[in-house]
Design a protein around this nucleic acid. Structure first.
Lengths: 244, 244
DNA sequence: TCGCCCGGATTGTCAGACAATCTGACAAGA
DNA sequence: TCTTGTCAGATTGTCTGACAATCCGGGCGA
């Protein structure tokens, strides 16, 4: 039921936009220009073209994107609502600056959402269970194929979202998507140096093996595994941010 | 959580330039009109003035609120982002219609978020623990004082949010707030008939007693209590909706 | 009856304008 | 020199007016 094209084109734009390459301006059929602009801005943020803290001037964006200022304003409001940018009254919108505290908060929230997914493993639909395996396989395949940094990120985070999908709640999945977008923003600010952190595919394989063996609870089960995994990711990202 | 409803005194916008004493533009809570409009629309939705499905015409709203159409559009975008309204391309924005499925989904999500709060009881800050007790007391006091339906709702849901605050995660609290807003929307559509459902204060008292006794886990503990409580609320709301 | 076209209504988007406010720099005074 | 007041430029928040695209309901013809 997640694949059924629900009406809010915005939700899927977040996860699909970064993967779908660069044909945004041409191929979108009846996409409203506001969404187009928002998607373009998201892409620029995720790919690090816009550094954290960069002010997003309405007039400059309107001219460079070939749209009007009200349209830009609406798109900026979307970005702000998603937490990817911040607005200060009369001082405009700028790219959000991920602080260590916000990374900790995001990871605490991930802990809850993904943990709920794992707890729901036994009662989850076979479809959702298959999807966990599928997203993991896609991730490991991308790792072996030496895919781009952005694609690895995308597939890695998609796997974690698929854990939340085990709960069967579209709202929880939406929340997880928003959290992942914030992480993508933070990761985009990290210098390209640590792009090699993606040999964790094996770790995820172990996690899914535990699930498939129905070893869910406890510190030795999938739950504990996930807790450690997210905690590791947290300190890793924070360290990367701290040393700029 | 509701700020003092500041109706900004924007009376005479025309005749101000010619006089002498022109500095001293006091910094009163510079409420942007977009936020004012969004707040007003939210209030109208929560108090049932706008029935579910009512189309929100931009021009009509602009005239009746005394603002321009772009401002209304921005406010509507906020409502849509919050899930209180839905936009269909080229057909405009209308008040969201809570379906049984969405209520189920909201309750599933609440189960996860509030459950996480309860699990975090022992590790929560004393401040957060006190807040749970405080919001409960405020709720029961309102019940005894025979407060208005809206106020009872507000305090009831505030209590549930305070459970999520035990996690210490601002993002989880934000998510809970959004869920509660959706519930408020659904409850606003329910006819006033079942306003008597608010003798549950005792039930909440039992829940907090379990927490304060550190009896968290298990079906006999606070966790199980919460699960049953939310499940009950779910069927209650859905039944109320189904019989229109 | 069914399908097609049409005019009104509404949205999506644009252009231009203005006041309020913030920023940065420069001049005046201690 | 350091502080302070003022000012011009830049930017936002909001308004007005306009236009094309699209959707809706109704009349027309087959």
């Amino acid at each position: 039921m997640d694949e059924a094209g629900c009406q809010p084109a915005r939700a899927s734009a977040g996860t699909m936009g970064a993967m779908s390459g660069r044909f945004q301006t041409l191929h979108v059929e009846h996409a409203l220009t506001t969404d187009r602009v928002a998607t373009e801005l998201r892409r620029a943020v995720f790919e690090g073209e816009l550094e954290s803290g960069t002010p997003l001037r309405e007039i400059a964006l309107a001219e460079s994107l070939g749209v009007s200022r009200p349209t830009v304003r609406e798109a900026l409001a979307v970005l702000v609502a998603e937490g990817l940018a911040t607005r200060e009254p009369h001082r405009g919108v700028s790219v959000a600056t991920p602080r260590a505290e916000s990374v900790r908060d995001v990871c605490r929230a991930r802990q809850v959402l993904e943990g709920a997914g794992i707890q729901a493993w036994r009662s989850a639909t076979p479809d959702a269970r298959r999807r966990v395996r599928a997203t993991l396989d896609a991730y490991t395949a991308a790792v072996r194929a030496d895919a781009s940094y952005e694609e690895l990120n995308e597939r890695h985070l998609s796997f974690h979202v698929s854990l939340v999908e085990l709960t069967g709640s579209t709202r929880l999945v939406q929340m997880a998507d928003a959290l992942m977008d914030e992480l993508k923003l933070a990761l985009a600010q990290v210098d390209r140096v640590r792009r090699n952190a993606h040999d964790q595919a094996d770790s995820h394989e172990s996690l899914v093996r535990l699930l498939e063996a129905d070893e869910v609870d406890g510190e030795a089960g999938a739950a504990g595994f996930l807790r450690r995994h997210i905690a590791d990711a947290e300190v890793e990202i924070i360290e990367a941010l701290d040393l700029q």
